[in-house]
Design a protein around this nucleic acid. Sequence first.
DNA 1: TAAGTTATGTCTAGGTCTTGTCGAGCTATC
DNA 2: GATAGCTCGACAAGACCTAGACATAACTTA
Lengths: 295, 295
Amino acid sequence: MADEAKYRVGMVSKMTGLSTHTLRMWEKRYAAVLPKRTEAGGRLYTDADVERLRLLHKLVGSGHSIGGIAKLPDGDLRHMAAAFPAPSTQPALRHLPEVRERVLAAIEHLRTDEAEQILSRAALSTEPTDFLKEVVGPILVEVGDRWERGELRIAHEHACSTVMRGLLFSLMRLYPTNDARRRVVVATPAKEDHELGALMVAMLAAMHGWNVLYLGPNLPAKEIAYAVTDTDAQLLMLSITNLKPKDSEREIAAIESALSERVRILVGGRAATAPRDSRVQIQQDLALVEAALSG
Amino acid sequence: MADEAKYRVGMVSKMTGLSTHTLRMWEKRYAAVLPKRTEAGGRLYTDADVERLRLLHKLVGSGHSIGGIAKLPDGDLRHMAAAFPAPSTQPALRHLPEVRERVLAAIEHLRTDEAEQILSRAALSTEPTDFLKEVVGPILVEVGDRWERGELRIAHEHACSTVMRGLLFSLMRLYPTNDARRRVVVATPAKEDHELGALMVAMLAAMHGWNVLYLGPNLPAKEIAYAVTDTDAQLLMLSITNLKPKDSEREIAAIESALSERVRILVGGRAATAPRDSRVQIQQDLALVEAALSG
DNA sequence: TAAGTTATGTCTAGGTCTTGTCGAGCTATC
DNA sequence: GATAGCTCGACAAGACCTAGACATAACTTA
């Protein structure tokens, strides 16, 4: 039904916005589509042809040359159209769901090299914040969920963390700074082993021009306080995703009491809590963390 | 699928932000990319070309000179983009002791950015094996010693690990491979949190053309066995530096019994031990591990 | 420190290629 | 005969090509 050749050239012109002249030329010069013919020689296009022509039209409109893309298979065209929406209007967020799917598939088969490749390509063409919010975060959540549902194993979760850790490290170092006045220490309190949140936050800070000292997961309160004081940092960011509220509050209180009042403390992550009466800010939303960093 | 040459120079200009003039000049003067040509002589770029150009653009933007980096392989570019932006022109071959001193000094003051900078510069101008044996290893040992003597704190040790981890990750990605016949899984058994040995070994393997699946630290025996079987790896490498002999032997025995006899198992690290009567090889010396990999 | 060299992005000039559009002349269908 | 379609050839605007000149900045060397 859908593969029936049923549209004549005038109709297709109206459907695609391409002139009949152009349709004929694209066929003759580039074989972009090859419609069936009536016995008398009239062109008959299928739905698939029309769809393809619409894609080509869109791509040409965004700067591609018809000669270069006319012969590509439909899949490639769709991919390109997704990767390159009208440049001025929308940022390149459209293809991020596909990136997520491909990365998840790669992780499922433990193909970390492939996952890395897809991710780093996407990272280069996406705003870092979007990348964190639309790719890294969702993938981590999804892997966690699938693991809880028993669809993925610990091995997958490790592989995923490893890839993400490496990636975030790399991205973080893309933004060097020498501004000694905006130092931030990023870490995870004792017993909190989950470091990816901290890494994401560290990357955001680096992106906003902060001079980041990243200390990794599971650091005793005394040590965190020492690092902040020793480097004369103005800001301390902690990430807490797994810790019990009791432990979390105890650690944070210990850190807070060891620090000068000048130091701002920002705690993020799913399980972030703080003692009352404390000057610690809780901020679970990445966008708000970012706002705090740019202020 | 994505390896077709399909973008003309104007489109590539839009995608990369480089002027068409610059694109032609980079090709003519530095052979940064060598696009296919149409019959008439028009340039046709692939997706890979575009990605490479984006990388080059980014690196040039952060201070590298195009002449210096135009001919480097993609892996190096990715590594550099991930590593840090200053150019690496110093051939520091016998400066390694000095490198060690400077890195240790930087870590002592929690200046991880500086440590990273020195290390990546040294890494790029040193043979990877030398780099591991003369720089990474000794620094880790030295930091551990100083920590035991009370001269350094946990915070320093964390900072050092973090830096090294990031660095080794980047280096590992310098050597991509698609050889499906030489797959190796690298991990650390349950309760062994110390992953730097594993990372060093993973990097060595990658360097020798192995297709490395790095799973990180602290992975249960079942999971390790699953990963090896699922990816059809020929070799499993474990690193053990902190585990008690009893735990170590139990984990290794569990892994061994779950694996096909075809799979070689290599265990390295300070605390490496294995049950007797096992086919597991123990190899503490990095040079010998390397020999095993190249064989 | 001054002067020369190198590295690199931009511009111009003159020619070729690409591509959308048009018109002429012909055919089939209603 | 009006309408829609077909093929072929022509054309103009703009995209691209090569080669070389230039300006500027960074690095060397005297």
